[in-house]
């Protein structure tokens, strides 16, 4: 059994068009990796594929976590195994409160471990939720609101991080969590992620811009281009990209230099 998420030669098509053309990446728990790259290079496709969205067709490769190829699992099974995706565009579930939703999700996890489980006692759940909301500086009224229904862009992203805090995944993928956020909202969300960092959590930050990495400092930065990881480096690589753009990477790829 390994404590890493290992992506090997992952090829993915959507509606017959190949988007990921052999992605290789290893994310150990305890580390934060960033995937950067221009728009349309397959970053979000990677995020959705790791979570198991039915519209994405895997044509080759494997993704190993805890000794299993998770590509063979349903999204809910992957979640219960410890994988979490913070969505770029979280959908609204009208009529279902954040608290009720999270309690159901917590109970689904408990039942997966023990089919006899009666569910988390309500006082215990309230305590858990309150603690996480305080940690992330989320307003208590959040718990009673309908999930993502009428939320601002910033509120949606904070709700994603709150879910992550309550569900305590081992691998978290943040898909363009910075998009659509002003600098204050970005800082609040990033502080939340930092508060959850630790040796039991591996984080994959998918982003177009470097600025979120000013707040969530990555251990490793990957550059994705045309469906492949083409460059890997440390946090300075992100700064270099910020300064010089992606053209130099593209040139390198076009000249056939291996990534």
């Amino acid at each position: 059994m390994s404590d890493e998420l290992i992506i090997r030669n992952l090829r993915v098509s959507i509606e017959g068009k190949e988007i990921l053309k052999g992605v290789n990446l290893t994310l150990p728990k305890g580390e934060v990796h960033a995937i950067m790259g221009p728009n349309g290079t397959g970053k979000s496709t990677l995020a959705y594929t790791l979570m198991g969205h039915p519209a994405y067709e895997v044509t080759d490769g494997e993704v190993i976590f805890k000794g299993q190829n998770i590509l063979e699992l349903e999204p809910d099974e992957r979640s219960r195994l410890g994988i979490f995706l913070a969505f770029q565009y979280p959908v609204a579930i009208p009529g279902v409160t954040v608290a009720n939703f999270l309690r159901t999700a917590v109970n689904a996890r408990r039942r997966a471990q023990n089919p006899e489980d009666k569910g988390i006692p309500i006082p215990e759940f309230r305590k858990l939720l309150k603690a996480k909301m305080e940690l992330l500086k989320v307003d208590p009224s959040f718990a009673g609101r309908y999930l993502n229904d009428g939320f601002s862009g910033g509120e949606k992203k904070r709700a994603e991080i709150l879910q992550m805090a309550v569900l305590q995944p081992e691998i978290a993928i943040l898909d363009e969590t910075d998009s659509g956020l002003d600098i204050d909202a970005l800082r609040i969300v990033a502080e939340g992620v930092n508060a959850l960092r630790g040796e039991n959590l591996g984080v994959l930050v998918i982003t177009h811009y470097q600025r979120i990495l000013n707040y969530i400092r990555p251990d490793v930065v990957h550059v994705m281009m045309d469906g492949r990881i083409v460059e890997t480096g440390d946090a300075d690589l992100a700064l270099h990209l910020e300064e010089h753009g992606y053209d130099w990477v593209r040139e390198k790829v076009d000249n056939g230099t291996p990534a």
Binding site: P54, E74, D76, F84, V91, I93, G95, A108, A112, Y146
Partner: peptide, 30 residues
Amino acid sequence: VGEEQLFYLMSRGLSEEEATTMVVSGFIEP
């Protein structure tokens, strides 16, 4: 009941049936 709603809820560990039930109970909540 949209595919995106089901995927979202399932990505949090709810089975397809639990996810559908949750969308339905939210719908009649008012």
